[in-house]
Nucleic acid binder design. Structure first.
Length: 1078
RNA sequence: AGGCUAGUGGCACAGCUUGGUUAGCGCGCUCGGCUGAUAACCGGGAGGUCAUGGGUUCGAAUCCCAUCUAGCCUACCA
């Protein structure tokens, strides 16, 4: 089968639909995997996107990086595992389902029934998964969509149970009362990774805590959370700091010295009064008066304050507080705290052990109760006395009012600051002391840090800086959530003896269960069914129940390394693929998946599950802002696909920035890439147009059969170099460099240069070996190009491949992705590539020169002279003379190290000669003006001096202006100068006029929309002079315009047919009437 | 407050790892050209304190330090 002529325009929609249909029908993905099955393994793990239902450009970028890299790896012979992953549990889905069901609270969920709620969550997650799958598919992402790992899969979930069992065996599982971040809306604990920060306005109040037994003396304390004051049990000071007793307005305040002026204002106010001077000579008088605003009574160390007690400020409102006061020694006293700093506040820190991690530790160390009068709904409990039942944050105002009424408020204002909110429902978080389950990350931190060092990070700072820092600061990981849709924590706890039983698999559960189980695995491993399973305590024999919590969703994805392989229930795949050679995710995953995998990996496997990480950036809008629904600047991937197609989007995203930088999405830039694809398509159309016309068949052709010109060898060399260089870039994950090189090759080398060079050859009608050489080379370059491009733009390359390769050779692999990625080192001739660069510059310089002289390129010139002192340049010109002749439209190319036709005018160097000659200057000026510059130059070069009007001048004293002869124009290029001879001889004039005539006939052919190969009859009617000019060129003209007959006549002999297409032209002032007939 | 990253013509980006011609490319602007790849292409031009200030060096966009600005991440903002 011959090569088919391609569609004239690049229709991305048609191509991509067609190719995707082909892949599906032929099961190309599976076949490609099968083909590479025996190759070396390269293991990759897909970071599971959360099943929110829609993908955004960031997710698209993420999958495109993965897909392009993996397609590349596959073409390099690697055997791959491209399993897609889905993150399907968790609060976000619960929240959406709550919405759908029209409910708002945990209480309502339990009324409806956990089973019904969980069913809805499952259904919702699966629906979303299917929708997102389709979107990834439209991008051309090749993953194993039919066999993904899903975090709701019971087999997957078992693997997370097993990890927790391993944690328990290493004593890394801990149930403890701690102060943790709490979302009052979701009614659950949150991990650090689930907290976002937003600018929020909060109260900022300075409160007077009366010093016990000292009248009108107060500790001044600052807080932004008045609602935590009901739980206040102490005040912390830093023992190292200096504190002052200050008398102001009749009372005494105790405050850190360094913060005194910030809080109380300037201690001394200076009033200046200006008395204007009476006359101008004197200066104005300024009288300064000092006013002391407050006085320092004494300065003490923080240490000296320790043990002092204060009268609790809400004693009347909260009876419970006074119980503590009487029962426990250190309640309502000053305690030491290293965490006290001098950045803000007063240096005296309100301490509520139930509401702050630091406070908690202070409380613990000093035997304070962990008093937390706030329930899981964020409302005060009855322990809060007067405030019972009120929502914490909303009660700020009331508490402030109460304090004001007691006269205990020093100052009250509001501030804007960053405050943590729940990542999904955006409710401001509160700190609460609760009992939660933890993974003791602090115990394995060192191991985690060691593992980070073993991983290869791209870019380097992602691991060494950012991630190391995060892990180094990590606290124990709160893994329990008081929710429903998640992996139930497999801990059965004995209420009597405290013994824990951690179940590691479903089989184990079934074995241990005291009752018969008659639900499916999927039901059994979720709430509420698993809640009903009772087992026997190993220690005391008591019947025990599971703790009611589910796991933090980050554990779900964290265990993907082995859970996706169903390890440890299944061992075989695990041995083949774990640990993973490569993962890539956005920089938000530093605290997310990179962390959760490393933590659980160290616990379960004693190692990091990944060995190489590419941390990529975020897609921002064109102003550099994050895309978000609230800003309304979100661009949906399908919008881009509709306009430009998946290939353009894919190429754009890999081209637009370094992968690890954030990417500004600019529509205009897409247009650019679209243009590149159009040009690629144009080259393809150009190629197939002529190749199909000539029935060109590349099958079995080798370079040895061909007569190739230098430019042919050059483009083949360039194409091979491209593959080599792109491979180096892709290996380093430098997608931005790889795409730039491809872009450059398509535009510069292939389209703007090679196609231009061979245009003339394709116009030859016969079976010319020279034309065949051009076809062969163009064909080879194109096939190399689509090979190198197809990991990035798989659709268009598959389409071209189908016609160009499969179309002519039934033996060829059925998909381009089955080709091996390779280049021919022997075909690379870097010397030739360098020479072509020189030739190109020379040609461009000569075109520039002609352009400046307004000498049309269409008109030939008799010669150009290239002047250069560089041996390499001259060699290059000699070798590529034909190309230069052709492209510069010159009959001859001369080389020289100096341009002899330059004439020189000598002139005096006034700067030197002026001071030296003074009065004689005039003689020299005149003498040099009349003398022959060339002769002076020669003399100076020979003797080093010359005598003018009896005065001897040396070479420094004479300057030269060079002058081109009238018929020459020149232009500079990197290696020298080009001089173009523009003298018009009769022969040149004849050829020029022939070209003018040809152009016009071609124009008319086009207007008639004639086939490229159609023959015509041409009649030309003109003046006798013009006829004489073009008749000698008849043969050339006929050939160029495909004329069967060419009749050129003087005006009088006119005898044309009225049916002919006739047009009257003005060529260089001559009237020319051209008629053409098919 | 700490960590990381970035700052290069109007716009979007290369170059920085490994210091070395006149700092590149594309878009846009402007002037001109070409016309069988033609909704394409080619050439000329204007437009840059390479964020700022120091330092190292014969030489810095590139290496070092400080500052400013922006983004992200983090923190016990009491």
């Amino acid at each position: 089968m011959p090569i088919k002529e391609a569609d004239k325009s690049y229709d991305h929609d048609k191509i991509e639909k067609k190719v995707q249909k082909f892949w599906k029908e032929e099961e190309t993905f599976a076949k490609v995997n099968e083909l590479r099955e025996k190759g070396p393994r390269y293991s990759f793990l897909d970071g599971p996107p959360y099943c929110s239902g829609k993908i955004h450009l960031g997710t698209a970028w993420n999958k495109i990086i993965k897909d392009s890299y993996l397609r590349y790896k596959s073409m390099n012979g690697f055997s791959l595992r491209r399993q897609a992953g889905w993150d399907m549990h968790g609060l976000p889905i619960e929240n959406k389902v709550e919405h759908l069901m029209g409910i708002q609270s945990k209480q309502e969920i339990e009324e409806i029934g956990i089973d019904k709620f969980v069913d809805k969550c499952r259904e919702f997650a699966i629906e979303n998964k299917i929708a997102m799958e389709k979107e990834f598919d439209d991008l051309g992402v090749w993953m194993d969509w039919d066999d993904p790992y899903m975090t709701l899969d019971p087999k997957y979930m078992e693997s997370s149970w097993w990890m927790l069992k391993r944690a328990n065996e290493q004593d890394l599982l801990l149930n403890d009362q701690r102060v943790i971040s709490w979302c009052p809306h979701c009614g659950t604990a949150l991990a650090a990774a689930e907290i976002e920060y937003e600018e929020k306005e909060d109260p900022s109040i300075y409160i007077k805590f009366p010093v016990t037994g000292e009248e009108d003396t107060y500790f001044l304390v600052w807080t932004t959370t008045p609602w935590t004051l009901p739980a206040n049990l102490a005040i912390c000071v830093n023992p190292e700091f200096d504190y002052v007793y200050v008398a102001k307005d009749g009372v005494t305040y105790i405050i850190a010295e360094n913060l005194m002026e910030d809080v109380l204002g300037k201690r001394i106010k200076i009033h200046r009064t200006k008395i204007p001077a009476e006359n101008e000579d004197e200066e104005d008088k300024i009288i300064e008066e000092e006013e002391v605003m407050y006085e320092i009574i004494k300065t003490v160390k923080g240490e000296d304050l320790l043990g002092l007690s204060y009268d609790y400020i809400l004693a009347d409102e909260i009876p419970k507080q006074m119980e503590f006061d009487s029962e426990i020694e250190k309640v309502h006293t000053i305690l030491p705290g290293d965490h006290v700093e001098l950045g803000e506040g007063t240096g005296l820190v309100h301490t509520a052990p139930g509401h702050g991690p630091d406070d908690f530790e202070v409380g613990h160390a000093n035997g304070l109760p962990i008093f937390c009068p706030v329930g899981e709904d964020g409302c005060f409990t009855e322990d809060a006395g007067k405030y019972d039942g009120k929502f914490t944050k909303e009660e700020n105002t009331q508490i402030i009012k109460d304090l004001e009424e007691k006269g205990l408020m020093y100052h009250s204002e509001t501030i804007e600051h960053r405050y943590g909110v729940c990542w999904r429902c955006k409710t401001p978080i509160i700190y609460r002391a609760t009992k939660q389950w933890f993974l003791k990350v602090t115990d394995i931190k060192q191991k985690m840090l060691d593992e980070i060092g073993k991983v290869e990070w791209v870019p380097k700072w992602a691991g060494e800086g950012r991630f190391y820092d995060w892990v180094d600061n990590a606290r124990d990981w709160t893994i329990s959530r008081q929710r429903y849709w998640g992996i139930p924590i497999p801990i059965w706890e004995c209420p009597d003896c405290g013994e824990l039983k951690v179940i590691g698999s479903l089989d184990e559960l079934k074995e241990e269960s005291l009752t018969e189980i008659n639900v499916s695995d999927s039901e059994l491993i979720h709430r509420p069914y698993v809640d009903e399973v009772e087992v026997k305590c190993d220690k005391c024999g008591q019947t025990i129940k599971r703790i009611p919590d589910v796991l933090d969703v980050w554990i779900d994805s964290g265990v993907a390394g082995w859970a996706s392989l169903y390890y440890p229930e299944e061992k075989e795949k695990f041995a083949d693929w774990f640990p993973y050679d490569f993962i890539t995710e956005g920089h938000d995953q530093t605290r997310g998946w990179f962390y959760s995998q490393l933590g659980t990996g160290v616990i379960a496997m004693g190692q990091s599950p990944y060995q190489k990480v590419l941390m990529h950036g975020f897609v921002l809008d064109e102003n550099g802002n994050k895309m978000s629904k609230s800003l309304g600047n979100v661009v949906a991937p399908e919008e881009v696909i509709e306009k430009y197609g998946a290939d353009v989007l894919r190429f754009y995203l890999l081209w637009a920035s370094k992968p690890w930088d954030d990417l500004k999405f600019v529509w205009e830039e897409l247009l650019n890439i679209n243009k590149m694809f159009n040009i690629l398509w144009n080259v393809y159309v150009f190629s197939t147009t002529y190749m199909s016309l000539d029935d060109f068949n590349p099958v079995g052709l080798t370079e040895d059969d061909m007569i190739l010109r230098s430019e042919d060898k050059w483009i083949i060399s360039k194409a091979n170099s491209l593959i080599k260089e792109v491979a180096e870039d892709l290996d380093k994950l430098f997608f931005h460099k790889a795409t730039r090189k491809i872009n450059n090759f398509i535009l510069e080398d292939l389209s703007r240069w090679y196609v231009r060079l061979i245009r003339g050859r394709t116009w030859v009608e016969s079976d010319d070996p020279d034309k065949l050489g051009a076809y062969y080379s163009l064909y080879t370059a194109l096939v190399k190009l689509i090979t190198v491009l197809c990991p990035i733009a798989p659709h268009v390359c598959e389409e071209i491949y189908e016609n160009l390769v499969k179309g002519v050779n039934p033996e060829a692999p059925e998909s381009i992705h089955m080709l091996d990625w390779g280049y021919d080192e022997d075909a690379i001739d870097s010397e030739l590539e360098a020479k072509m660069d020189v030739a190109r510059e020379v040609i461009e310089a000569s075109i520039r020169a002609r352009d400046m002289a307004q000498y049309k390129l269409r008109w030939p010139v008799s010669d150009i002279t290239v002047v250069s002192e560089d041996e390499d340049v001259l060699n290059a010109i000699e070798e590529l003379t034909d190309i230069i002749k052709d492209q510069s439209n010159t009959k001859d190319v001369l080389c020289a190290s100096e341009f002899e036709k330059l004439s020189y005018n000598a002139k005096p160097n006034l700067k030197i000669l002026g001071p030296k000659l003074k009065g004689d200057m005039g003689k020299v000026v005149k003498g040099l003006k009349t003398a022959d510059g060339n002769q002076i130059k020669a003399e100076l070069e020979e003797n080093g001096c010359v005598t003018i009007e009896g005065i001897e001048l040396n070479s420094e004293e004479v300057l030269f202006d060079s002058e081109l002869p009238d018929d020459f124009v020149s232009s500079e290029f990197e290696g020298g100068n080009v001089f173009v001879n523009t003298n018009i001889t009769l022969e040149i004039r004849q050829e020029a006029m022939a070209r003018e005539l040809i152009r016009r006939v071609q124009d008319m052919r086009k207007e008639l929309d004639l086939d490229v190969e159609a023959n015509i009859n041409v009649d030309v009617e003109t003046s006798a002079e013009f006829k004489d000019l073009i008749v000698p060129q008849s043969e050339v003209i006929s050939h160029e315009v495909r004329a069967k007959s060419l009749i050129i006549t003087d005006s009088e002999e006119c005898n044309k047919d009225s049916k002919d297409y006739t047009k009257e032209w003005d060529i260089e002032g001559e009237k020319v009437v051209i008629s053409i007939k098919k």
